[in-house]
Design a protein around this nucleic acid. Structure first.
Length: 474
RNA sequence: GGAGAGGUGGCCGAGUGGUUUAAGGCGAUGGUCUUGAAAACCAUUGUACGGUCCUCCGUACCGCAGGUUCGAAUCCUGUCCUCUCCGCCA
């Protein structure tokens, strides 16, 4: 979520920033937000002062009714007089009359019960006014919140301004592109031939975009996950094992909801959903807490499966395991101060790149332009591995700084050193890395003329020292 | 799955629908005292929103959400979570 105060103070600037994103419709929300915000504050001010009056009157009512030493005639007289004052909207005067601090003329004829009934009637009117005001506020706030939840994050000033992904700035590729003396095969040919990817049985079990890894395929994935987690740990990340199913609040917190509700799978057990990435659970780890600056940065990494419905990309990338409903990923998340988040983004991106380098696969960094930033990032780098079989760059990592966008939604705050004034922290996330695409890259880059695949050296210790995957089995 | 008990400030823990606006304690912070420390004593104590602006004021928050009431930490309903016992289970 954006800072409502920023929208209030610099609405035109905010509109101008949103215009750089590929998000028609978001700009129009700003004027609605300004209108609702104004309305909300006005209504709130008047309702709260009515409530202040009611609170003090009810407190005085308690004192009047519970007073054991005051004669009934005086109570009746005070109740009578207070009714008059309330009728004239003199709430302070009425309070004084009821709690006994203001003088009153006692009339012997006053009837206590009648006077109290009348007074309660007056208070009831005031209560009705207040609850009407509150339901108005509730309506306004629900509408305001809805608009706020659909507003994308604003781009950082360093992000290149361009409309679409074609304009993403590709850095110089790193690593050596292999010269093949034969026609390199795509992984959807190699995998089944080696008996390590079984598409038919995946489809039989669960439908399209599902697959089974068998033998070396399953072992290679497990080795990669272990390797990724070891890299993260070496880089100072604390390893977490988190739930794979979360409540919807968490998905609002990390900003998948409401906009990308379609891409997430629900489970039959009420308000629960399968995570599309462990970013969801990690970002919400400290939801509602107020951390100390001394605790920051917090670095967490977790391996989880990721579940995505891929409704938006129906019909695209249907071959192979590039785009599937279920895959494994190691995700890195950082909680930092606003001052350090951009430095941390560079560091985290370099760490993801270092993993590619260790696997000896050619890779490049993409600097994402404003029009392709996505919903929650202020700045984003993608890392892509080259795959000679399907002849394309495969996104294996995406590293983002969301600044305080998720922090506002998930209530992630900290006390800056030496203060007790809360401040939103910054969250960053980056894959490190995602398995099916890395497996594609390894298979396609390391394939031999005989169909076998050479195992990258860094993975061999995880695979009993084996040097290659062959059709001979595991 | 069955039965029961609970959820109150950073922590512990009181709390008959009003006459107190959550008692008391611990911790933390500041101060007094002290050569220094401890002890003792004094003071302060969370979050959010709104108003006012550099200082206060107001409102809300006793797991969460509704309801009853002139008035709810307190009564009612739902819900989430925790604990205990039983059953089942990797």
């Amino acid at each position: 979520m954006l800072d409502i105060a920023l929208i209030r103070q610099r609405p035109d600037w905010v509109k101008q920033q949103i215009t750089k994103l590929n998000d028609e419709g978001a700009v129009a929300r700003i004027d609605n937000i300004l209108k609702l915000d104004k309305e909300r504050r006005e209504t709130r001010t008047s309702v709260e002062s009515a409530q202040a009056a009611r609170n003090s009157l009810n407190r005085a009512m308690g004192k009047l009714r519970g007073n054991r030493t005051m004669p009934d005639e005086e109570k009746a007289a005070r109740a009578q007089a207070a009714c008059g004052a309330i009728g004239a909207a003199d709430y302070e005067g009425a309070s004084g009359l009821m709690d006994g601090s203001a003088p009153v003329t006692v009339n012997e004829a006053d009837d206590l019960k009648g006077a109290f009934d009348k007074l309660i009637g007056e208070l009831r009117l005031l209560g009705g006014e207040i609850s009407a005001g509150f339901s108005k506020i509730e309506t306004i706030e629900a509408e305001l919140r809805e608009h706020m939840l659909w507003l994308p994050n604003l781009p950082h000033e360093s992000v290149p301004v361009a409309a679409s992904e074609e304009a993403n700035v590709a850095h110089q590729p790193v690593g050596t592109f292999r010269e093949f003396d034969f026609e390199p095969q795509p992984h959807w040919e190699l995998g089944p031939a080696l008996g390590i990817i079984d598409f038919e049985r995946g489809v039989k079990l669960s439908g399209s975009r599902y697959y089974v890894l068998a033998g070396w395929g399953a072992r290679l994935q497990r080795a990669l996950v272990s390797f990724f987690l070891d890299c993260a740990r070496a880089n100072g990340f604390t390893e977490l094992y988190t739930p794979y199913i979360v409540r919807s609040d968490m998905l609002y917190g990390s900003a998948q909801f409401p906009k990308f509700q379609d891409t997430v799978y629900g489970v039959a057990d009420g308000d629960k959903f399968l995570i599309p990435t462990s970013e969801v659970t990690i970002v919400n780890m400290h939801r509602g807490e107020i951390l100390d600056e001394a605790d920051l940065p917090l670095n967490y990494a977790a391996h989880t499966p990721c579940f995505r419905s891929e409704k938006a990309s129906a019909g695209r990338d249907v071959r192979g395991i590039k785009r599937v409903h279920q895959f494994e990923k190691v995700e890195m998340v950082k909680f930092t101060t606003p001052e350090t988040s951009y430095g941390e983004l560079e560091a985290m991106t370099e760490q993801a790149e270092a993993i590619c380098a260790q696997l000896e696969i050619p890779y490049r960094r993409l600097e994402i332009v404003t029009g392709d930033l996505g919903f929650s990032a202020s700045k984003k780098y993608d890392i892509e591995m080259w795959s000679p079989g399907c002849e394309e760059w495969l996104e294996v990592s995406s590293c983002s700084n969301t600044e305080a966008f998720q922090a506002r939604r998930a209530l992630l705050r900290y006390y800056p050193a030496g203060t007790r004034k809360t401040r939103y922290l910054h969250t960053l996330n980056g894959s490190g890395l995602a398995t099916p695409r890395v497996m594609i890259a390894i298979m396609e880059n390391n394939q031999q003329a005989d169909g076998s695949v050479v195992i990258p050296e860094v993975l061999r210790t995880y695979l009993g020292g084996a040097e290659a995957i062959t059709a001979e089995g595991d």
